[in-house]
């Protein structure tokens, strides 16, 4: 699976363009609007920011096209449809909470399986007010910061060095892609064996898992810069520094930013995951601890809290990525 790319005599740098044309439409990722998405187990796919496909023709629009007020109709219709979908979303969420409430109060679902949503809400307020989450949050965020710093510096440095030669790209890119397709969380027992139950094993595992998207995207970013730009800059007398600063870096940075965003997301995920599986402190540990103590309402409250934290962090990182790409 990894070999076919490298066996071709043409180095990837020269083929980058044509291989993109044939790429299938890539799915929207977690954070929308990403430029290049590396998927596990394969070379990167470039999804040029294609305009979203026009919606299906609607019967009403076609019927109204002949009418005199045809121009005014679509806009009104769009806003009506948007309101309708918002309404459905709100109704869905309200219905979900209502079912949850009824299930826990009226329908006799065991409290140990599904606590009352009001109790969860009270617990959430209590957690936020008492500030007992601060220690665990600090542990998790410190692990995250250390792991991401390690994988970002290591991944970008190594990726840049490899990308300097088409030959090294051909040697290493399939290797990294193959390793990236293994769920590295499998190696958690080894990490625990080497680094103990404390933060060190989480940092090491998070760094190891987030290293791969970053290094693969860095190679893709620096290695697949259009040759024409490089040649033009060289022929106009650009020094190595100028070439890097004004050609390579601007061309590569969107792809690298995507890699960093993916690395951050996976680091967060794997750190919370490894805290859940084997640890002494941290948000994941707290959830497991409460689950084992059968304090369901508090556990649900912590789950809501952790999900809110994770979604906030991911949103911030996606915003930063989008801003970095715009500049």
């Amino acid at each position: 699976m990894a070999g076919n790319e490298a066996d071709s005599p043409v180095p990837p740098r020269f083929r980058a363009k044509q291989s993109h044309v044939a790429a299938p439409p890539s799915p929207p990722s977690c954070a929308e609007g990403s430029g290049v998405e590396v998927v596990p187990g394969g070379a990167f796919e470039a999804n040029s920011p294609a305009p979203p496909a026009p919606p299906f023709p609607k019967k009403k629009e076609r019927a109204g096209a002949a009418a005199p007020q045809a121009i005014a109709l679509p806009r009104k219709q769009v806003s009506v449809e948007r309101a309708a979908s918002r309404l459905i979303q709100a109704g869905f969420l309200v219905g979900l909470v209502a079912v949850w409430y009824l299930a826990s109060t009226r329908w006799g679902v065991n409290r140990l399986l599904l606590p009352n949503p009001l109790a969860v809400y009270d617990n959430l307020l209590d957690i936020l007010r008492s500030g007992e989450f601060i220690d665990d949050l600090e542990t998790t965020l410190e692990e995250l910061a250390a792991a991401f710093a390690l994988s970002a510096t290591g991944g970008i440095t190594l990726g840049y060095l490899i990308s300097r030669s088409p030959y090294w790209i051909a040697v290493f890119e399939p290797l990294f892609a193959a390793i990236y397709s293994i769920p590295i969380i499998l190696f958690l027992p080894l990490f625990v064996l080497f680094f103990g139950l404390g933060p060190a094993s989480k940092i090491a595992l998070g760094a190891a898992i987030s290293f791969f998207p970053i290094v693969i995207n860095t190679i893709a970013g620096f290695g697949h810069v259009d040759r024409l730009f490089v040649m033009a800059a060289r022929s106009m007398g650009a020094s190595d520094y100028h070439l890097f600063r004004h050609v390579l870096l601007p061309a590569a940075s969107p792809v690298i930013l995507t890699g960093l965003r993916m690395g951050f997301t996976t680091a967060l995920l794997s750190i919370i995951g490894s805290e859940t599986l084997a640890s002494l402190a941290g948000l994941g540990h707290r959830i497991v601890h409460l689950a084992e103590a059968m304090e369901m309402a508090r556990m649900f409250a912590y789950i809501v809290f952790v999900i809110a934290i994770a979604v906030t962090l991911n949103t911030i990182v996606s915003r930063l990525e989008a801003r970095g790409k715009r500049d």
């Binding site: 977690c30 954070a31 995920l269 919370i272 995951g273 859940t276 959830i287 789950i303 999900i307 994770a310």
Partner: peptide
């Protein structure tokens, strides 16, 4: 986008 591992228990 949710980290599903939090609801593993």
């Amino acid at each position: 986008c949710m980290p599903q591992v939090t609801i593993l228990p």
